[in-house]
Design a binder for these strands. Sequence first.
DNA 1: GTTTACATACATTCATGTTTGTATATAATA
DNA 2: TATTATATACAAACATGAATGTATGTAAAC
Lengths: 213, 213
Amino acid sequence: MVRKTKEDAELTRLSIIDAARIVFLARGVSRTTLEHIATQAEVTRGAVYWHFKNKAEIFHALRDQAFLPLIDRMDDMLAVENTNDKTSNKQEDPLTQIENSLCHTIVELNSDLQMRQTYEIMMIKCEYVEDFATVLQEILNNCSSITEKIQLAYERAKSLNLLSGSHSPRALALDTHLFFSGLLHMWVKDADGSRFRFQAIELIKSHVDLRRK
Amino acid sequence: MVRKTKEDAELTRLSIIDAARIVFLARGVSRTTLEHIATQAEVTRGAVYWHFKNKAEIFHALRDQAFLPLIDRMDDMLAVENTNDKTSNKQEDPLTQIENSLCHTIVELNSDLQMRQTYEIMMIKCEYVEDFATVLQEILNNCSSITEKIQLAYERAKSLNLLSGSHSPRALALDTHLFFSGLLHMWVKDADGSRFRFQAIELIKSHVDLRRK
DNA sequence: GTTTACATACATTCATGTTTGTATATAATA
DNA sequence: TATTATATACAAACATGAATGTATGTAAAC
């Protein structure tokens, strides 16, 4: 049980990230030792230090694994209508596009335990200081970009005369973004699911409906 | 510089909580030592251990100091109209009541640096595990109770025929709660204020307006 | 005189980073 | 193709620096 092939080494790397997720979730990021992670991954700290510089690097790897794909997917679902692609979300009306992209995120979280756990870690098991503060800024940037996409969708909806009332697409987008941000937080904190988890989809539909003519 | 009067001791206690806030904010809760807090408060760890059992107890004290008053105030502003009290928020229409209670919280946060810092600690400088997990549950309970108050206000608004559309007060309340929860999070994370801090009031007004007939 | 409100000193545990050791994969060379 | 060299992927040991909790000391208040 010593030297492995490159493929084995990659598996070790992944299992360390996997282990980190489990231990971070249970003990919080600060309180988990590299020893904890190593034990969970059934390796020694030597292996951990071989693959990662320190705990922060593991944290970043974990984030990249779960966060980025979801952000990308959301971005994609909010993209401008593309008439060549009949199978995608893009032929829906803009409001339905918004609704679908939000719902999709929730569905993903519901079906993917690991992603759910990672979100929980990022939201309530991590202190955003020093090495971790940058992650927060990145998240904020992602949020901004998504808000802009939502705004564009609302602008399309407006020009298609789909909106009730006369609110600015900007204000609508910010409101939607804050709603969804709050929903994700509550969704994560609501461990037993009694408050938000089981009605998240409903809440999204209701939120979007409020804007529909 | 040894034994003090009861009043002096109470001042020491408060200065320890004050110091904890400063250090928690800068270093995160986990990474701050009781030594850090003691130094900041210009006492020794002896004094800290005299007044508090451990770090978690300081954390709880800090929370009680900043959180509870704000919650109470919000609760109060959402209370049922009281015709005897002409000076309060209670003579406003229910939707304005909701708007005011949300705005009030933001104004408070804007004017009270310490409260703002405490919120920041609770949201992004603390890991909710073990000793701290209970705090999260308490926060969730507070949220539930506020949501209920908001729902009651929406019900009053509905019976006064102030609402546009035909959405249920329950759905409206949840939506508002999630919006505000998201707003608080963003408000706190948005350190330089460029994204949310300076337009929070506007966003609240716009959110409530969306529901007004 | 006793309790209070601390300061100081001590003991222990624990986490981190580094260093060293080592078996094996892989590339180089002959 | 067989041999050798080197880099890889770890394990194990070590050294250091905290951080915690407790125990003890002490001066002033009551």
